[in-house]
Amino acid sequence: MSLIEITVIVESKDLIILKLKGDIDASSSIRLDKELEAAVLGAYNRILIDCTHLDYISSAGLGVFMSYIHELEEKKITLILFGIAEKVFEIFSILGLSEIMNIVKDKQEALNLKYIGNN
């Protein structure tokens, strides 16, 4: 049984959105990793993660995001998290991930980031 529900929405040729629902713990992080890997291999310029319904993320889940930081930078892919709950954001921020990841308030802001985020 997986605690996480991931919905993949391909918005356009260069934009994919992963909607996360539930908890990401050690076991469900494997699914997140799979979906994220597929998205990265899919050559989208931007990967948006909808965290509106994400209730919890464990260190294993953080590890998944972390493990892609280097690859994303190399491939010039922008990964943006939006709609993150305060409690979950806290977890990102304690670890320092919020400093190096793009975390914005909502989807609109995430879409706007296109012009400024891509370096």
């Binding site: 930081i69 320092g96 190096i100």
Partner: peptide, 18 residues
């Protein structure tokens, strides 16, 4: 305080984040 976990940034940029 500002603080980045170990092993996240695996190069010398790390000290900018602590």
């Amino acid at each position: 305080s500002k603080g980045m976990g170990l092993g996240i940034i695996r190069n010398n940029k790390f000290n900018q984040h602590i």
